[in-house]
Simulated assay, not measured.
Amino acid sequence: MIFGLFRRSHDDDDVRTIYSGIMAHARHPAFYERYGVPDTLDGRYDMLMLHAFLYLHRLKTEPETAREQGQKVFDLMFLEMDRALREIGVGDLAVPKKIKKMASAFYGRTAAYDEALSGTGGELAEALGRNIYPEEGAEHAPLLARYVRHAAEVLAAQDLTVLVREGPSFPDPAPFAEQKSAAL
């Protein structure tokens, strides 16, 4: 009976699978090589937040059970960030403050991306430029904005059951960057 307390549920496995897929896609080399995203802790964090946003954005108008799965992915993401901060040596007293700051940044970015994604102009490129390219590389923001719009469209067409059980299937950013670069 006590062993049942330590068994992971199938739902936990689904959430880990979804989070792992989002994380893996956020680390795609094309973002750092072709889109000019800084290959730093901050740059990788920004790409993880962007892809988590795209997944959660897709689920926000779906039934409660889908939104609950999104919340579980969000919770796991910040649990993993807590673990990562501790692994790199951030002190126990500082971790909660850093997580709070990271969550605040996530909420700010998602609000900006959500508003900009509903617009038709350059608002998305501006929001990405401010958040992902704060020091240099903002000339890549329009290309990344086109990718984000494309990814949102791809996710909108994906089956909800698959999204909730297996996670999103993001488009490959490499060919999209090549195709769009030629058009610039």
Results as ranks from 00 to 15, higher is better:
residue 73 V to L: 12
residue 26 A to F: 10
residue 91 G to W: 01
residue 62 E to S: 10
residue 129 G to N: 04
residue 9 S to I: 04
residue 129 G to T: 04
residue 158 Q to S: 06
residue 155 L to S: 09
residue 94 A to I: 02
residue 43 G to Q: 10
residue 76 L to A: 13
residue 152 A to C: 05
residue 102 M to T: 15
residue 33 E to K: 14
residue 75 D to I: 10
residue 104 S to R: 11
residue 103 A to Y: 00
residue 96 P to R: 08
residue 148 V to N: 03
residue 86 R to C: 00
residue 1 M to Y: 02
residue 1 M to Q: 09
residue 24 A to Y: 00
residue 73 V to A: 15
residue 13 D to I: 07
residue 44 R to N: 05
residue 91 G to Y: 00
residue 29 P to K: 12
residue 20 S to E: 15
residue 15 V to D: 09
residue 26 A to S: 15
residue 132 I to F: 07
residue 18 I to F: 15
residue 116 A to I: 01
residue 70 G to N: 13
residue 4 G to W: 10
residue 73 V to W: 10
residue 159 D to W: 01
residue 156 A to G: 13
residue 172 D to N: 14
residue 137 G to D: 06
residue 163 L to H: 02
residue 84 A to R: 04
residue 39 D to Q: 09
residue 41 L to K: 07
residue 79 L to M: 10
residue 132 I to L: 14
residue 22 I to W: 02
residue 91 G to E: 11
residue 70 G to W: 05
residue 136 E to P: 00
residue 2 I to Y: 04
residue 83 R to W: 00
residue 45 Y to C: 02
residue 28 H to N: 15
residue 72 K to A: 15
residue 89 G to R: 02
residue 175 P to V: 03
residue 142 P to T: 07
residue 110 T to G: 01
residue 45 Y to S: 14
residue 48 L to M: 15
residue 99 I to N: 11
residue 31 F to Y: 10
residue 102 M to K: 03
residue 12 D to Q: 14
residue 147 Y to H: 01
residue 65 T to F: 02
residue 162 V to C: 09
residue 163 L to A: 09
residue 35 Y to A: 08
residue 101 K to L: 12
residue 117 L to A: 11
residue 19 Y to W: 14
residue 82 D to H: 11
residue 155 L to Q: 07
residue 101 K to W: 01
residue 110 T to N: 08
residue 52 A to P: 04
residue 125 A to N: 03
residue 94 A to N: 06
residue 173 P to R: 11
residue 49 M to D: 10
residue 121 G to I: 05
residue 169 S to I: 08
residue 153 E to N: 03
residue 134 P to D: 03
residue 71 Q to M: 11
residue 16 R to C: 02
residue 42 D to V: 03
residue 104 S to Q: 13
residue 174 A to P: 05
residue 170 F to M: 09
residue 115 E to P: 00
residue 20 S to H: 13
residue 155 L to H: 02
residue 105 A to S: 14
residue 168 P to G: 15
residue 119 G to V: 03
residue 120 T to K: 06
residue 171 P to K: 02
residue 139 E to S: 08
residue 58 R to A: 15
residue 31 F to P: 05
residue 28 H to D: 15
residue 86 R to Q: 04
residue 43 G to F: 06
residue 62 E to M: 05
residue 76 L to R: 15
residue 151 A to G: 12
residue 40 T to E: 06
residue 138 A to F: 00
residue 105 A to T: 11
residue 174 A to N: 11
residue 170 F to E: 07
residue 34 R to S: 13
residue 40 T to W: 06
residue 104 S to K: 08
residue 175 P to F: 05
residue 173 P to D: 12
residue 176 F to A: 11
residue 10 H to W: 00
residue 61 T to W: 00
residue 115 E to H: 08
residue 117 L to S: 07
residue 181 S to V: 12
residue 158 Q to W: 00
residue 11 D to M: 06
residue 178 E to P: 00
residue 168 P to W: 06
residue 4 G to H: 04
residue 65 T to H: 12
residue 147 Y to E: 04
residue 171 P to W: 01
residue 162 V to G: 05
residue 167 G to S: 13
residue 103 A to V: 13
residue 152 A to K: 11
